[in-house]
Computed example of a mutant assay.
Amino acid sequence: MFKEVSQLLVIDDETLNLELISSIFSEFPNIIVLTANNGFEAIELLKNHAIDLIVLDIRMPGINGIEVLNILKSNPSTAHIPVVVLSGDEQERKNALKMGANDFVAKPFDTEELKLRVINNLQLKKYNDLIKNINEILQKEVSKKTKELREALELSKEAEYEMIIKLGMISEFRDEETGQHIRRISHYARLLARLYGLSEQDQNYIFYAAPLHDVGKIGIPDKILKKPGSLTPEEFEIIKLHTTIGSKILESDPRFKTLKAGKIIAEQHHEKWDGSGYPKGLKGEEIHVFARIVAICDVFDAMTSDRVYRPAFLVEQAINIMKKISHIHFDPELFEIFINNLEAFINIKQTLKD
């Protein structure tokens, strides 16, 4: 599955867990597992090894997992390393995500779930590294050949868009959605941004970043994400974490504008105009315009598409429902523009059918 060797560091004070996790990845010849019995040992290992992902137990003697996480995220040389935390306490998991953890697995952990989450996060890191490398290579070429650079930039943007689509689909496939849904959101968002009067540059940012709005769903267990019935209050609280997880996944160097826009959208696309949304309860124009645009587009496409818990609504039914909740959910100016240009959005949906 992996073309290059990846190094996984497992930090846990229980020797049995270290042996078990090491055995989980023994079937992957291109994954090297390093282990540490405590945080101090792990920090020393990190000085001499290029680690691609860390599996971190929260409850350990000496310095606990939260303290280790704080040290990792405070150090520029280790802050970029994805961290999957292990904890049986929901509040501990939430605290870890707020401090920069990328994903979590509940303890006692299911070995198959841990394996899949580690592999998914390694894939995400490789996509992000690839995008970063492409941009760095292109920057070095600026001083060389102008014509070739223009061609390379065009190819890079196309490749970046396809990689972003694939990145979004990693989570969407688990949610019974398709790549066409991802592409529709992208085109809806650019159209609404243009109609609203955003600059061409911002239109491009939202076009490339919108597909990443639900990437955080990769961190939500299948039994909740694919549940056909109503969610319990506790399950809904876990679903809501996909905004925070998505934001953490997309943290990057501020120079990478598309990923910066994706981080904003992933975190804020469930905020509501009246302040009743999540995760931060932002209100009105406190919500970034990119997220306000994607919120309208995402609700429209979700309502007019089949879901595991219901069939698609007709467009007329969906619009009537959206109008009833618009004063709560949506930027009124953006929603009016959307309604006044509805035919153009319907054309996109018909062109990019599932």
Rank of each mutant, 00 (worst) to 15 (best):
K263I: 01
L97M: 11
L18K: 12
R183Y: 12
E90D: 01
H80W: 02
E14T: 15
E286K: 08
L56D: 03
T78E: 08
L149Q: 09
E14P: 03
S87D: 10
G246T: 12
I238C: 00
P61Q: 10
F256M: 13
P332H: 04
L53D: 06
H269D: 12
T78W: 14
E285T: 08
H269T: 13
F330H: 04
I43R: 04
E333W: 06
L195D: 04
D298G: 08
Q139W: 10
D103C: 02
N347A: 15
D13V: 07
E235C: 11
R310N: 13
A152S: 12
T35M: 04
N37Y: 08
V10E: 05
T244G: 10
A96H: 05
R150C: 04
F338I: 06
E90V: 02
I296H: 06
T146V: 01
E141P: 06
L69K: 03
E136M: 14
A159T: 09
T258I: 15
I224L: 11
P211W: 14
L46H: 11
D12P: 09
T178N: 11
F207S: 00
E136I: 14
I54K: 00
S252L: 01
E19A: 03
T351C: 07
S156A: 15
E316H: 04
Q180V: 06
M60P: 03
K223Q: 02
I71N: 01
S305A: 08
K223P: 07
I165Y: 07
V5S: 09
